[in-house]
Nucleic acid binder design. Structure first.
Length: 147
DNA sequence: GCCAACGTTGGC
DNA sequence: GCCAACGTTGGC
């Protein structure tokens, strides 16, 4: 799961109440569907810092809720407000994410060096999804070899 | 700041 | 349903 560290970094997560943050602001249908259809409580999360001086995996977290409506879509003062959404038929969902651990940054360039990770969705050419699946093999490799 | 890549919008 | 225009993402 990608986040801009200016907005929500691994340190923010570590210091949040209950070490938990709602993953607000996803406004892409594919990313939303991953949360809705594929994520379960207890799933591992690679916390990725994007759009920053050192992009890469900065920590480990866990999904701690199933998907539910993102309240910011109803908030006129929020940058994530969506006038086309309604309480009755919410368009955007989120999951809660709980902190597990901070790790020495695994830079994007390091991820790209490993043959084992060449098919990682987040590394695919032109990928713009902020949430992408990680295979079992990719997860194990990152945890054992890089984290 | 640049720019490639991709998603969304909206006219037709 | 097509597709051009536009906006956004995100690494560099």
């Amino acid at each position: 799961m990608k986040s801009e560290p200016d907005e929500a970094s691994i340190d923010h997560l570590a210091h949040a109440a209950h070490h938990t943050l709602p993953w607000t602001g996803v406004r892409n249908y594919q990313a939303r569907n991953f949360m809705r259809d594929m994520m379960q409580v207890g799933d591992g999360v690679l916390f990725y810092h994007s759009s920053c001086p050192e992009p890469g995996i900065a920590g480990l977290a866990e999904v701690s809720s199933t998907a539910y409506p993102d309240p910011t879509q109803f908030d006129k003062k929020s940058p994530y407000f969506d006038p086309k959404s309604s309480q009755e038929t919410p368009r955007w969902l989120l999951v809660d994410v709980v902190f597990k651990k901070k790790i020495p940054l695994i830079p994007l360039a390091a991820l790209r060096e490993h043959e084992e990770l060449k098919d990682m969705r987040v590394l695919a050419r032109g990928n713009r999804l902020s949430i992408t699946p990680v295979s079992e093999a990719e997860w194990r490799f990152i945890i054992k070899r890089l984290a």
